[in-house]
């Protein structure tokens, strides 16, 4: 089904918060899912999967232990959202010619939007690689080299992000619309529902401060 990018962003943000991540990470996750959707990539489905996987997992277990060396979690797998946000925070490292390597990061496509914003910041394209796939972006456009169809990878991989020379082939431009399958959309709604206060009569009367009648 076709959705506006604002709908995708808003629901992804609420769902991420509903799954227990911080508001700040949720805000950026909304924008990341939006970015992927604008490139017709399945950010919504991957987000649902990672939120399910990490639901009720303590955050320190899925965040990079340190931003030095190869990034890894204390135990288990790195969350692509938390790791992606940290990558964007550290964008300057890429312009200095350093790469960022993450060990055991799940759902690696979700890291790509964060790398894209890093590219905008350093004013140079970046390349994100896992398994046999390489994705390049200047922050807006995208090129995917994916001979073995590993873009929808969910299980943990090693991911490397580096600044890249602009390839000669054109980057595909983002669109203004996104798609999501119904099941994934409903799953996001279920996570988002956790952020809504249950309806009560008291809340209904007092919370919005409206009058009792509008027949005037």
């Amino acid at each position: 089904m076709s959705y506006s990018l604002n709908e995708i962003e808003a629901l992804s943000k609420r769902a991420t918060r509903g799954a227990g991540l911080s508001w700040g990470i949720a805000e950026e996750t909304g924008k990341a899912t939006r970015w992927l959707a604008s490139h017709d990539l399945p950010g919504v489905s991957l987000l649902v999967d990672v939120l399910r996987q990490n639901d009720a997992v303590a955050r320190p277990d899925i965040a990079p232990q340190s931003l030095d060396g190869v990034w890894q979690a204390t135990s288990g797998t790195l969350c692509p959202l938390v790791s992606g946000a940290a990558l964007n925070d550290c964008a300057g490292r890429l312009s200095a010619g350093h790469s960022v390597e993450m060990a055991n990061v799940s759902h690696p496509l979700l890291v790509v939007p964060f790398a894209a914003w890093a590219a905008i910041h350093i004013k140079a394209p970046v390349a994100v690689t896992w398994l046999d796939i390489t994705i390049e972006t200047d922050g807006f456009g995208l090129s995917v080299d994916d001979p073995k169809v590993q873009i929808n990878q969910t299980s943990p991989v090693t991911l490397i992000c580096t600044s890249a020379l602009q390839k000669s082939n054109a980057l595909s431009a983002p669109s203004h619309r996104g798609n999501a399958n119904q099941a994934a959309w409903q799953a996001l709604n279920a996570f988002a529902l956790r952020t809504y206060a249950p309806a009560t009569e008291e809340s209904r009367i007092l919370g919005a401060g409206a009058g009792t009648s509008d027949n005037d």
């Binding site: 529902l193 809504y196 206060a197 249950p198 809340s203 919370g207």
Partner: peptide, 20 residues
């Protein structure tokens, strides 16, 4: 500040009196 599940209406409540 909270959002009600009732049509996602934004609302404002009393922190110490309501379970919000």
């Amino acid at each position: 500040w909270y959002v009600s599940e009732e049509k996602l209406e934004p609302r404002l409540g009393e922190r110490f009196d309501e379970p919000i």
